[in-house]
Design a protein around this nucleic acid. Structure first.
Length: 819
DNA sequence: AGCACGCCGACT
DNA sequence: GTCGGCGTGCTC
């Protein structure tokens, strides 16, 4: 058997290709593709790399180094994953290292710049440690936190990462994650009687005496004692109220008197306590038909669009499909947009499949991610629910991928490379495993819809609502007319106000939606019109009322709110633009007696704020919630009679070829929040353009017409799904350089494209961020050209730009299929 | 991408 | 005299 002398190693670098290292004779028999190795890089860096392949060709252009140590006995990533990573790197035009960095858990990827933290004390250590391990532990005991590069100075450099890995596996050290915010799981409120009250007769009697004028509380207290004696299970407040009546205020009053304790528990833990799974429900006729049709499409190896209106029962179909997949002993990957991870959907899936379900979420800490990684590798979970990053888990026998809410733009990664779209990559991954794919949506993306129309995907529709209640009635309110006749207060028209009053009278609740894109208030001088701008970015600063600070949402710059205009010294400063905060204030002044809450990123920052607001709304302690998209997605409210949209126009006038598509989706989604259980709800949309095609279509729930209209426009103006886009962004601190390089790039490509397919360089609406000037070039891949040939042209163009020394400092970023 | 090396301006 | 600015070149 010929020995493998060299290994190609994947390193977490933004450099093309893999890196060649020599394998020592003693490592040769054990080294396998997919294992982690520790390698030296540059002058004094250490990296954890992945074995990509073996060969015996000594490189002639550079001197190879040796692999320091092999970190695993078995591969941690599968060969399919390596192929998948390579596919992504090629398609999204980034390096294999970019994919590795993003796809692999940080805690398994120690490198020089990683910081480690000592947990516990020296005295607590029971394991046998080697001499070098003790050296590291003692150093950490003194300092608390050390970088891997610092540890490398203490011990044999070659075994540094091995030592760290061993200590980490023994639970002695931890990755330092200080800056990572903690994931807050969904909680439920519970109640228990103060144990002292039950054991101390005096306390018991005095308590009852105190409640002699509060019959309901007295009765509740006694009932609680009875409940506790009958079962050891914790008592859910919501369940107790349903059974015996009462309200939260009452429990809080009892808590103040020290008779009971209110506490919270994570839902997932409760499920462990209450670990009975239930059988899936029988499907109705339409769902059964859908299931059969899906099965037929799967036979043909076709992706299926499951297109069903709100409440049409997509979840039940998903569950049956998972069951079928399970019967073949195959794994299911269930993708959800990040925001929906805490939704009822996840709870329902867990209810059916119990501990076969693993959940992967970007806010899980590194230990939890590693645990899920290993359990997936060992095939311990048969169902994985996760956001887009779950796509990178080491699946063993993937049989089905479900992409729920496939139209959500959250599936596209925009913050770091690779800029991949999880829905699209789900199809690629499925192809590697020969797995089936379901794309689910009430308002599919036009890409998916087009594929379903042309027969590339199977199209399965669910049109009947589960409960047979008609969809909410949607009406438009003409803001221009309201302004003319002065039938408006602030941003609330009289019609909307009347409807709110009516709804509250009927004992129902109200949701008011204000799109976040209608930006929070900007400070403006009333005499000269000047607004303070960010010193680093080309954007006006945003006023944060609570802290009285002006903040930049792009670079984080913040400054105190000035008392006078910096331009004309006038003291008359006003705010412009409407955010949720302002709508809340307006509603409070119109309805001083109603309880109003706000639900947006700012208001939900406090721990459990989200859970508490939801709970209070469910218990009807809140009359109106004002919110952003947050209220539109994934929430099931049962008592909403009215949904109001403050201003639909900001969504429609957004300079983006997807604006209309997104507006339709969002408005339809918001409308779906009204009147879910057994009565028809009402939706009022305020707008300056009541004649707008899209809004008219929204009122009729006419997805087909909307899709047809938009697709027609997309076809004539050359946009997806009729062709693919690639956006190239140029950034530099000097404006002239950005202009020059982007211009040179376009000139290089011009011979290969006509002016309809090569656009720019264009200045984006925000032309400078973090002191870097920005220019964009947009390429529309012609229908008759191969995407790969266009990508090759782009790469060649950049390479030839980089032959000019002065051009190299301009950062060039490529976004394939930009959102 | 990072990072070391190297050559010029404003400070103790 | 030095500290540190970023332009340049390299990483298996």
């Amino acid at each position: 058997m010929a020995a493998n002398y060299f290994a190609e190693i994947i390193l977490p670098l933004a450099l093309p290709g893999t890196f060649t290292y020599e394998i020592s004779p003693e490592d040769q028999p054990y080294l396998k593709v997919g294992q982690r190795v520790s390698v030296p890089f540059g002058t004094n860096k250490l990296y954890t790399g992945i074995v990509h392949s073996f060969h015996q060709n000594k490189p002639e252009l550079f001197k190879t180094k040796f692999i320091d140590s092999v970190l695993d006995t078995e591969p941690l990533i599968t060969e399919i994953q390596i192929q998948f990573w390579e596919w992504i790197a090629k398609y999204y035009m980034c390096s294999l290292g970019d994919v590795y960095r993003n796809a692999f858990p940080t805690a398994l990827k120690w490198e020089s710049e990683t910081f480690v933290k000592f947990i516990g004390t020296v005295a607590q250590i029971e394991e046998n440690l080697s001499e070098s391990e003790w050296m590291v532990v003692n150093a950490l005991d003194k300092k608390g936190i050390l970088a891997v590069s610092e540890i490398a100075k203490l011990v044999d450099k070659k075994s540094t990462i091995k030592i760290i890995k061993s200590l980490w596996e023994k639970g002695i050290i931890q990755l330092d994650e200080v800056l990572k915010e903690k994931y807050t799981p969904k909680v439920e409120l519970f109640i228990k009687v103060n144990p002292e009250l039950k054991s101390d007769e005096k306390f018991f009697n005095s308590s009852l005496e105190k409640l002699k004028n509060a019959a309901k509380q007295r009765e509740t207290l006694l009932q609680l004692i009875v409940e506790e004696s009958q079962s050891s299970k914790p008592i859910k407040i919501s369940k107790f109220i349903k059974k015996f009546g009462g309200n939260h205020a009452m429990f809080r009053s009892m808590e103040e008197k020290g008779m009971v304790e209110i506490y919270d528990l994570e839902i997932s833990r409760i499920d462990e306590i209450d670990n009975k799974t239930i059988d899936s429900e029988a499907l109705n006729f339409e769902q059964n038909q859908a299931l059969k049709t899906i099965g037929n499409y799967f036979e043909e190896k076709k992706t299926v669009l499951l297109h069903g209106v709100t409440s049409s029962g997509k979840t039940e179909v998903y569950i049956k499909l998972i069951e079928q997949n399970l019967e073949e002993d195959k794994t299911t990957l269930f993708l959800l947009p990040e925001i929906s991870i805490s939704s009822q959907m996840v709870q329902r899936i867990r209810k059916y499949f119990g501990d076969k379900v693993g959940i992967y979420h970007s806010k899980f800490n590194q230990n939890e991610r590693v645990e899920l990684w290993n359990k997936t590798l060992n095939d311990e979970y048969k169902i994985i629910i996760g956001a887009r990053s779950a796509l990178f888990l080491p699946f063993q026998n993937l049989g089905l991928i479900i992409v729920d809410e496939e139209q959500e733009t959250a599936y596209k990664q925009t913050d770091s490379r690779p800029y991949f779209h999880a829905r699209d990559m789900a199809l690629v991954l499925a192809n590697f495993y020969q797995a089936n794919v379901i794309l689910g949506s009430a308002t599919p993306s036009l890409e998916t819809y087009q594929n379903a129309q042309t027969g590339k995907y199977g199209h399965v529709q669910l049109t009947k609502r589960f409960t047979d209640v008609p969809l909410p009635k949607i009406e438009l309110i003409d803001l221009r007319a309201a302004m003319r006749s002065k039938e408006i207060t602030g941003d609330i028209s009289n019609l909307l106000r009347e409807a709110i009053i009516e709804t509250i009278k009927e004992g129902k609740q109200v949701l008011i939606f204000q799109n976040r894109r209608g930006f929070a208030p900007v400070v403006e001088c009333t005499s000269c019109g000047h607004s303070p701008f960010c010193p680093n970015c080309d954007v006006p600063l945003t006023l944060h009322k609570m802290s009285n600070l002006l903040k930049c949402h792009y670079c984080g710059h913040s400054q105190a709110k000035p008392s006078k205009c910096s331009n004309c010294q006038s003291l008359e400063l006003d705010t412009k633009g409407i955010g949720t905060e302002q709508i809340e204030v307006q509603l409070e002044s119109i309805f001083p007696k109603l309880k109003i809450a706000r639900m947006d990123v700012d208001a939900m920052r406090r721990k459990f704020a989200y859970e508490k607001t939801l709970e209070a709304f469910e218990e009807r302690e809140i009359d109106i919630i004002v919110g952003t998209q947050m209220i539109a997605k994934g929430l099931d409210f049962s008592n909403v009679g009215l949904v109001g949209v403050i201003r639909a126009d900001s969504m429609l006038n957004f300079p983006d070829f997807r604006a209309h598509e997104k507006a339709f989706q969002l408005l339809t989604q918001v409308a779906g929040r009204a009147g879910r259980r057994n009565e028809q709800g009402k939706v009022l949309i305020q707008t300056y353009n009541p004649d707008h095609e899209i809004l008219q279509n929204v009122t009729r729930y006419d997805f087909e017409k909307t899709a047809k209209d938009i697709l027609y426009e997309r076809k004539s103006f050359l946009y997806p799904p009729f062709l693919r886009l690639i956006q190239i962004t140029f950034r530099h601190a000097k404006k002239e350089k950005v202009d020059k390089v982007s211009e040179a790039f376009v000139n290089l490509l011009k011979p290969n494209f006509d002016e309809k397919h090569l656009l720019g360089p264009e200045e984006p609406s925000i032309s400078r961020i973090r002191n870097l000037y920005i220019k964009n070039v947009l390429i529309k891949i012609p229908e008759n050209a191969s995407p790969q040939s266009v990508k090759n042209l782009i790469e060649k163009g950049i390479a030839s730009l980089y032959t000019v020394q002065a051009f190299r400092s301009v950062r060039i970023e490529i976004d394939v299929d930009p959102q």
